[in-house]
Write a protein that binds this DNA or RNA. Structure first.
Lengths: 276, 276
DNA sequence: AATACTATTCCAACCAATGAAAGTAGCGTG
DNA sequence: CACGCTACTTTCATTGGTTGGAATAGTATT
């Protein structure tokens, strides 16, 4: 500071240093500051995390609150609002599949009484759409609304195996994420695994953290034959032989697929075309 | 351009007839055009329902799509995106209560095997947060994410009974909505019912449409002793005596309340230590 | 009482937002 | 194959909603 040079282009009073982001993007970035750990935030926290001045944040937040996207608590902090949740419940890939799959998930849940998961792919990760868990089930890593890697989870492998070839290559070429508790596979093994998943309709993963568990997942297809979701169960390692679980999971996944209009035409050729 | 000045009120070229709504409001109104019946919409439909010109809608939608609030289908139509669902899953009154309540809902579900509902109040309606239903359960009126009236549903009555006095008066003074299938109560009877609900912790409603059912609901309290949600079961009328159901519902609701920190009374400390 | 932080209000400058107009694409019809 | 119709997209001159520093008010901490 101190200097008073300014010269010709006199900023006078109102200087507008960094400006130029569309309003909507800013508003959305205010929604994005919330996370599993940050479910209730103050104005200044939101402004800081979203990277904008407090007055700007306040103004935008006011609109979001007015609409119901955010709600204000008694202590002044903000949380995600029910209205947003309401609109989001119309997401076909969110609550859409869930609504159709839920009864089957419940049936499956009653067999194992541990965890039943439903996930879809969003970009380079799996998003957990639903999770049924008994009160006394083993600890599990992911929560509903949370994200899981594609390469090191059973649902992730199923979703990856069902993605288009080009996307698979993109993922495979990336360095593995080295999740703790999961033995990371070299690229070649991942490719073999994906191929197996496509052939058998089953993916299986053992992990040791946060507890020793086995996950068995199977794909859910839509009417066009695309993999739109993955269904899986998670049980303590050793509780039930995986080869007993697999048929149950596959059957449940197929039932859901059928409900989505997937006429299981004996799948004349799983791998679309040119192979090799 | 030297426009030919027609007359005095020359619209010239660039006329800006109706302008003045904040961008965020417009963007949000684009989200609000989706409903149970309208889950996939074209650009022009969205523009029409939201009441704005197509180019404007397109520009805003593009941002929403970029962020993931909306997704575009192969046929060009737009749907609510998973990303929005993901953020919405952080809503304390949405998935928040749900996460805590779900195990208890499942226990309750196994007893009756029909419907278990979880709802919160938003404004003058109840919003359905969760619904567990068996595949062969009787038809039920409301879906998850949908809204139900306060005066003529079991969960609604519980939420209304737990609302502050002033709000209750506001609702009571409004003319009843006369839902088909539910005998509408005169104001006096509603008041008596609400009082009963507060005393017994149970609300019960019989309805004949879409099928003959009995609903039994009970309030869920938070640490401050406020009613934050309502839990209910819906069974076919005549299948199980309501006085058998009531204790089970109440017990489940209490278990959830306890889990929310409802320790009978007054929590002295609600301070969060700032970390960071 | 001083300090530090957060929340809110104010307002002049100005840039992102606006929407009519025109262009492009798809489709059914004469 | 021309024609009309509808839906979608791009362009661009105009401007009003948006912006953020500064000031003020409120609240917790030292």
């Amino acid at each position: 500071m101190t200097a008073q040079p300014d010269t010709e282009t006199t900023p006078a009073r109102g200087k507008r240093p960094k400006q130029g982001e569309p309003v909507i993007d800013r508003a959305l970035s205010l929604l994005a500051v919330f996370s599993d750990r940050r479910r209730a935030l103050t104005l200044s926290e939101m402004a800081r995390y979203a990277g904008m001045p407090a007055p700007t944040a306040l103004r935008l937040i006011a609109r979001l609150v007015a609409w119901g996207a955010l709600e204000r608590l008694d202590d002044g902090r903000y949380v995600v609002g029910v209205r947003l949740w309401e609109v989001a419940s119309l997401s076909p890939r969110g609550h859409g599949v869930r609504e159709i799959a839920l009864p089957y998930l419940e049936d499956l849940f009653e067999v194992t009484r541990h965890h039943v998961l439903l996930a879809v792919r969003d970009n380079e990760q799996a998003v957990l759409i639903e999770r049924l868990s008994s009160k006394d089930a083993t600890e599990v890593a992911y929560r509903v609304g949370g994200r899981a890697p594609l390469r090191s989870t059973a649902v992730g492998l199923v979703l990856l195996a069902g993605a288009d070839q080009q996307f698979q290559e993109t993922i495979l070429r990336k360095p593995p994420e080295n999740e703790p508790g999961v033995p990371d596979m070299p690229e070649g093994q991942v490719r073999r695994t994906l191929s197996d998943v496509r052939r058998t309709g089953i993916a299986m993963i053992r992990r040791s953290l946060p507890s020793r568990t086995v996950s068995v997942a199977s794909p859910i297809f839509d009417a066009q034959g695309s993999v739109v979701a993955a269904l899986s169960i998670v049980v303590p390692d050793g509780s039930t032989p995986p080869n007993v679980l697999a048929p149950a999971v596959r059957a449940a996944a197929r039932a859901v697929s059928r409900n989505l209009g997937h006429h299981a035409e004996a799948s004349p050729d799983a791998r679309t075309h040119s192979q090799g």
